[in-house]
């Protein structure tokens, strides 16, 4: 199969990778580039664990061809905390403080889906949050504390606390 070198813009860095057309973005991220924070839970777009941001919007990397992703800004969970200091993003912190993380396997996807929502709609309501997270499955938390974590961050944001 013909392989080609493509350039991927991930977390504000350009990576050159050799891929074949059949390579899925999730696999390129995880296996070739070591962005293992992007998880693979079902491979069929049902669980949302592989969620990444593409041009700021939540995408399922298990249903994306790597070759289709050139020229787009990709953000993985590794790109959310402060890149220089390593300090957690307040949304990440909110997840921890609210007990919204148990096994942690869905957490990267949950956080990225929430980020995409709030970047677009900083005043997101409970309904908006549920709408944005309905494709991110979690089996540990029962979602309630995840919802609280996101709501609390939205509130802090609106009050200028973060």
């Amino acid at each position: 199969m013909k392989k080609q070198v493509i350039k991927l813009d991930i977390n504000n860095r350009i990576y050159e990778v050799l891929v074949s057309p059949t390579d899925l973005l999730v696999d390129v991220l995880r296996k070739q580039l070591g962005f293992t924070g992007t998880k693979k839970g079902c491979g069929q777009g049902d669980c949302g664990a592989c969620t990444i941001l593409v041009d700021g919007k939540a995408h399922l990397s298990c249903l994306m061809l790597a070759v289709s992703s050139e020229g787009k800004k990709i953000t993985t969970i590794e790109g959310i905390a402060n890149q220089e200091t390593g300090e957690l993003h307040p949304l990440q912190k909110s997840f921890l403080d609210h007990g919204a993380v148990q096994c942690g396997f869905c957490s990267p996807g949950m956080i990225l889906s929430s980020m995409a929502l709030i970047d677009e709609n900083p005043n997101a309501t409970e309904e908006d949050i549920k709408h944005a997270l309905e494709g991110n499955l979690c089996r540990c938390t029962g979602y309630v504390l995840i919802l609280e974590a996101v709501e609390s961050y939205v509130k802090a944001l609106s009050q200028g606390e973060v």
């Binding site: 924070g37 993985t76 921890l96």
Partner: peptide, 23 residues
């Protein structure tokens, strides 16, 4: 004490390693 789990920061940053992450 309601201590956030100790492995939490590694989980929310994607640093933590599950089996399939290992090579």
């Amino acid at each position: 004490r309601s201590i956030p789990r100790l492995d939490g920061p590694a989980k929310v940053t994607g640093k933590v390693q599950y089996t399939d992450d290992l090579v």
